[in-house]
Write a protein that binds this DNA or RNA. Structure first.
Lengths: 249, 249
DNA sequence: GGGATATTTCGTTCCCGGGCGAAACGTGCA
DNA sequence: TGCACGTTTCGCCCGGGAACGAAATATCCC
């Protein structure tokens, strides 16, 4: 069936801890810049650079330049499947399915996407912001890739989600300081959420809201994953402030 | 989803050329002894031994002792899927699908299974031998594993395919010298053919028939795979001697 | 028991590849 | 233009592991 496929070459690409972490970080199809991946892999930028170029040359990743950034993402769904296959075997077995299952659930429930909120929490927040007219627009255009400022901008990513004057007031009341938002970064962007297949809020505003929620103790980062844990006060706050009903568990 | 799976460890197992060849050789679920795998991988027996123990310790293979042999096989279907995933990506892409396709076709058409005939040729030969009463029996019992002398014997593998007196005469006429058959090996065994899902003939008789066909120039081993090429005289011979109709291409 | 064969262990050699920091590019922003 | 930042290239060090042959071990057959 597979005549003389050079499996070993692919294996060698995955065989390194740093590269493996990079692949896992990109596992959900996101596109991330080299610096972030270096951090994710826990190696120096120069080391990550070498890893990334090997992965690209090996056909596992693709790059797209965006100004002085280079965004990397999985070359295709087959690569994602490969990663799945590997992950399925990597612990002696998916024996710990109970723990792993709850972990997977947690990630889908609420997580960070780079520096903003994603998962069910992220999309419900997006809904709430639109419903309460904090944001308007976003009708129709759907970007299959990801349009966050921290993701690779695909053509036409600039769906017109706009902040309303009333929205600015609401968010300031919530504790967002618009004057101190990262200046060199678009305020409102969106991401396509892989677990929800809908948009969530990115951009400097998205990051600021996530930061504020952490500051308020509404959510807390998990130790070893991108999952977020929502506290009791978080459930209350989300309901009262944004009308978001999240069912825990 | 996959929290902290140690993907790199699995990758490292596949990252070596020798181990990759071993995995590919076992890719169809066969169980093979260490010596054969060493040959398949093109390394010394000692080297292969080290590889095999790493693969077993890593959970990709399982071993079963059978006398002084140790038969290795993939630890489970997930491992097979992993290999598939890898093979799907390994050449820059399945771009050379034309060549690869014909190669895959050739392997299904006719190949060696260790030392005897498999693929469509192997199963048609088995049919012919039963139809012409060279062999009798084999009714019902179906071994999901493989019961050849050169494969791992699973419980109940000894389905009663028996050689008939008339069959002995026929085969002697064909050029099989029963006196010189490997004495320490069962004469008639069978394998479950993975590409045809039916039995083909193994054992010392299966090996002798394969050898004789090669000797007669009916079939020729391919360079880089287990595929067999059937010659023009081979098609004629198979038809006249065994009534086997193989459509080339 | 003795000879043959399958497999593993041991000891040695050798090379690939990962890690880092410093410095060189290249691009964007002021 | 000049500074800042993201990324890559370069040079160096170092460890792991893959290879082989020879010898040890285990098992089978006669």
């Amino acid at each position: 069936m597979h005549g003389d496929a050079d499996i070993a070459a692919i294996g060698a690409l995955v065989a390194d801890r740093g590269r493996a972490r990079i692949l896992l970080a990109l596992g959900d199809g996101r596109a991330l810049p080299a610096t972030v991946l270096a951090d994710e892999a826990g190696v120096a930028a120069s080391t990550a650079s070498a890893h990334l170029s090997r992965l690209v040359k090996g056909g596992l990743l693709t790059v797209e330049r965006q100004g002085r950034h280079r965004y990397f993402r999985l070359a295709g769904p087959e690569v994602g499947e490969l990663i799945e296959s590997l992950a399925r075997i990597s612990p002696p077995a998916p024996v710990r399915s109970l723990k792993q299952g709850s972990k997977a659930h947690a990630v889908r429930f609420a997580r960070t996407c780079y520096d903003h909120l994603a998962g069910m929490l992220g999309t419900k927040l997006m809904d709430a912001l639109l419903e309460r007219n904090v944001l308007t627009g976003g009708d129709g255009v759907f970007d299959p890739g990801c349009g966050g400022a921290d993701r690779l901008a695909a053509p036409g990513f600039d769906v017109d989600y706009r902040l309303t004057p009333a929205g600015v007031r609401d968010l300031e009341a919530f504790g967002i300081d618009f004057d101190s938002l990262a200046p060199r970064r678009p305020v409102v962007r969106y991401c396509v959420d892989w677990s929800e297949q809908r948009h969530h809020l990115a951009g400097s505003l998205g990051a600021a809201i996530a930061e504020r929620m952490i500051e308020l103790g509404w959510v807390r980062r998990a130790e070893r994953s991108r999952a977020l844990h929502v506290s009791d006060s978080g459930y209350v706050g989300l309901r009262e402030q944004f009308g978001i009903e999240l069912s825990p568990r």
